[in-house]
Design a protein around this nucleic acid. Structure first.
Lengths: 182, 182
DNA sequence: GTACGCTGCTTGCGCAAGCAAACATATCAA
DNA sequence: TTGATATGTTTGCTTGCGCAAGCAGCGTAC
């Protein structure tokens, strides 16, 4: 999503246009960025009624001690706005997959806690999702140096604030970043 | 978005879990898929009031003969549902960036046509967007074999139907796939 | 301890986008 | 022709999510 075949010349500001190899890479990535998550999400919804955000929440919770996380921490982990996460957790808790408990050490905070039912749902959804990830993503990376790929792609994601859930790195300088509760 | 650190064992269906390198690659990609488009879109909106879909429409039109495309063709190109595209084009046409003309050879069809104003807007938006693509994406791919990358990532996108704008390849067998227009 | 500001979460609202139904035109069969 | 069916686009409705405002609890200064 970058170039018009007319006007191939360099831009006023002197930013060098993409060369053909770069352009091919970018166009491929741009398309994958649209298609891959939709495909995986469609599979997830069809099989288990979970969208990617919901699956992601369950997965993140399952990986944390006590299967619980603070809302804001979780929002960050799944790259959702805090308000967005509130609603996701609300949906999940209506289905009994997650419960919310007040944080003992900071009554403002909420812990989202994965229930046994939630864990079971995740376990049920996992194989199919894994299969989708393999088929739609990993299987195409056979000729690629995975370490370099992960590094490169990881840096894209890490780079910028990129709304909404602003990176917790790059916080306003000198904020101690304490965290009371677990 | 794939694994729980508990339950590392193979799944019932026998799908092999991701090994650490694969997992790192997938997690990096999963995050980039969320973050990169948001970052680029935020820049685009801030600078020119265009979201990615709108920019994409303008760009695709600019690359086609007569700067015009059929609605459904365009929907496919920008990976939007047909109804979604209708509204994007409607927004753009309210801004005078695009006009709609009935297709001469098939009165059911509509041609979205990029206006001079639309082209000018695209030209204005291009440098900044290009710069964003370089900074957020290409600059991180320096150590990567671009050809392999493009190939791999391109196949991800090409692989599956993946709603909504179902791939025009893989159409129900034996439909002639004729196209009257333009 | 009370007042003030800050933080964490939720709520109200708006927007973008998908699905399905409606609509318009085309095409084909009889 | 006239109907029956297929195709291209739009419209109605719903959903997910972000922003900004609201609210409750915390921390600090006095």
């Amino acid at each position: 999503m970058t170039k018009r075949s007319s006007a191939p010349a360099a831009t006023k500001a002197g930013i060098r246009p993409l060369n053909p190899a770069e352009e091919a890479a970018w166009r491929a990535l741009a398309r994958a960025i649209l298609v891959v998550p939709r495909t995986l999400e469609a599979e997830l919804i069809e099989a288990h009624g979970l969208n990617l955000a919901e699956y992601s929440v369950l997965m993140n919770l399952s990986e944390h001690p006590d299967r619980a996380m603070r809302m804001s921490e979780l929002a960050d982990a799944v790259a959702l706005s805090v308000s967005g996460l509130t609603r996701v957790v609300e949906r999940l808790s209506r289905q009994g997959l997650v419960t919310r408990v007040r944080c003992e050490t900071d009554a403002r905070g909420q812990l989202a806690h994965l229930t046994d039912a939630g864990f079971a749902t995740l376990e049920a959804a996992y194989p199919r999702h894994l299969e989708g990830v393999r088929r739609h993503v990993m299987d195409h990376l056979v000729d690629v140096d995975l370490a370099k790929f992960a590094d490169a792609v990881g840096n894209m994601a890490a780079a910028e604030p990129g709304p909404p859930a602003r990176r917790s790195a790059g916080r306003p300088p000198s904020v101690p970043a304490k965290r009371a509760g677990r």
